[in-house]
Design a protein around this nucleic acid. Structure first.
Lengths: 192, 192
DNA sequence: TGAGCCATGTAAACGGTTACATGATTCC
DNA sequence: GGAATCATGTAACCGTTTACATGGCTCA
């Protein structure tokens, strides 16, 4: 079983999907997986070196004019490691850190109107995020027409997620405003 | 404006809510904020020292028999810093890292049945998480009766969140099974 | 000619987890 | 007597972000 660092996972996948350089990988992740799986240059370039030393990828000097560019592709061992990771169902990383929820958790320590103001800006922020996600839907739809459908599926996840946030904070807002106890159970009732 | 590290934020809040020792803080976060704001001993103890040096908290030697215990409480400066942080609406930390969603994003690289198996275990995992959250509801309800209602609100967030995940993955599962395109938009329609 | 993009890389700092080390107390 | 819990703390390691540094290419 080949051990892959978090950044190695997204690198191998992106190379398989068509990215070739470190710059490429950064650019593509920036408008696709950024929301749930980021990668910075400080990780990407050293990781590409390590993956090549381990024989999972191969790089070739591929200058663009005078720009020294290094283009990578998966080796057979790299393909195998990628497939192994993609079908591994043992345990996986899920990290969630939400400062507004922490502030809400401590809501008993501040005034009612202060909680309400926090809730309101949080809802507004998620509305903005939902809009941003919807703004890149067209690009994902075109990609889907060319056969890559799952990036669109992941984007739809993001849209649904942001919409749920807007809903949840919106309802909490209403309850706080009306003076009802803010502790009703929410039931997710998604429809397609 | 007093600068607080991420761990300092949860420490100040927990001290205000009644926790007294580093051990206390760890124990309380473990069954309350763990899901969205963790803290480990390796962070807590050094941070308590730093906060005391900065005059935001004060510790007193408070042995329990022969056990050397140090009990902390907020100073006026600490109370002010906590309030300032709780009402700051400028910018906040939101981090989301989801390996199953990354695998889904790369779904075009593996077989249809392999994607389906991933989706299924993800849904099952979230069902389990939702159950776990519901399992601590009673404790949160008691706490709410004593006047602390927002920890319960945060827990209800977690339950709604997990339920939404179950819904979303469940619907994707159905579509993958039926051969429909897995790209319909989900609309969150929460009801109280 | 200048802005913006293409392209690669490193160093420092930061934050976090894990593992290790120690030992008393409580309760069955 | 032994297990679980109370209690504190450090060292090593890991992964990530940010800032810095460099410089060519493209197009208006």
């Amino acid at each position: 079983m080949v051990k892959l660092t978090p950044t190695a996972r997204v690198i191998l996948g992106m190379l398989k999907l068509g990215a070739r350089t470190g710059y490429d990988i950064k650019r593509v992740t920036e408008f696709s997986t950024r929301f749930f799986w980021g990668a910075s240059y400080g990780q990407i370039y050293p990781e590409l070196r390590k993956l090549e030393r381990r024989g999972l990828i191969e790089g070739e000097h591929d200058p663009r004019g005078a720009i020294a560019r290094r283009a990578y592709h998966l080796t057979d061992a790299g393909e195998a490691a990628l497939h192994e990771w993609l079908t591994d169902r043992e345990n996986w990383i899920f990290e969630y850190r939400d400062e507004q929820l922490l502030r809400l958790f401590f809501g008993d320590l501040i005034a009612h109107e202060e909680v309400l103001a926090n809730v309101q800006v949080t809802r507004e922020q998620w509305e903005q995020t939902a809009d941003e996600f919807r703004g890149i839907e067209t690009a994902a739809l075109e990609e889907a027409d060319e056969g890559q459908i799952f990036p669109l599926t992941a984007l739809r996840f993001g849209i649904g997620f942001a919409d749920w946030m807007v809903e949840w904070y919106g309802q909490l807002e209403e309850r706080l405003r009306s003076g009802e106890p803010p502790t009703q159970v929410e039931k997710a009732q998604s429809s397609s």
